[in-house]
Design a protein around this nucleic acid. Structure first.
Lengths: 123, 123
DNA sequence: CGGGATCCAAAAAGATACTG
DNA sequence: CAGTATCTTTTTGGATCCCG
């Protein structure tokens, strides 16, 4: 008899490992802790922003990566997208409740890094 | 008269932005929050481990990326490398004080993600 | 065992042009 | 303005060989 639940993903925890490759935690962690994911979650942590604002605030990001990262974060339910039917178009992005939760956890990390970065890189 | 301090890196903060591209905070943040950086800091947060252990614990990592990530984290002063002059060679990796600090900040994030990942990805 | 060096294939990121 | 489509460049990863 088959006991598989049909999932193709590895379990969340294996003894002696951090997380198995391809497990759900690794997938979501990659989204959240990705180079641009962190910065966008951070940029949205002080409220709603438009596409063009996010592009400026997230210095150095390409349009492609902004679109891609926003879609990923929206797909994970971290970011809400509000498109207004006006001309010229206006789209606002903001954090969901779930997004606020991770952003709150991200914040201490980024603050610690910002405080110590110069010291870390000197030499 | 020139007032530059000789640094080629942007300042740590600019109004209306998260962090400027290429600034020290962004550089260190990329190291810490990188796909493998997070997992290795996490793997070391419960104590010292050997190369081969880290390779197994960090499921899916290649030798190349393990070496590269360890060097980066060592260069940033997050990881300490202890090579014992024995045959066969034995090298232990552990967190420095600074490494413990970031790992402590990383932990709540990874735990939150591990707890919610399945729910986030379902559908 | 714990790597470093090299070469190649694949994937991710970036730049740019174009569109509703 | 807010993207999409396309092309190029960079980064990553795997495999292999070598060495102390």
């Amino acid at each position: 008899m088959k006991v598989s639940d049909g999932s193709t993903r590895p379990p969340a925890l294996l003894v002696g490992q951090t997380y198995p490759a391809g497990c759900s935690a690794r997938i979501v962690l990659d989204h959240v802790s990705s180079k641009w994911g962190v910065l966008i979650l951070l940029a949205l942590s002080d409220g709603s922003h438009r596409w063009s604002e996010l592009r400026r605030r997230t210095d150095g990001i390409s349009e492609k990566m902004l679109a891609q990262t926003l879609k990923t974060l929206e797909g994970d339910g971290f970011v809400r997208r509000d498109a207004h039917a006006v001309i010229p178009p206006r789209v606002d992005y903001s954090l969901t409740g779930r997004g606020e939760e991770v952003a709150a956890l991200l914040k201490p990390l980024t603050e610690w890094v910002a405080e110590h970065a110069d010291e870390i890189l000197e030499r």
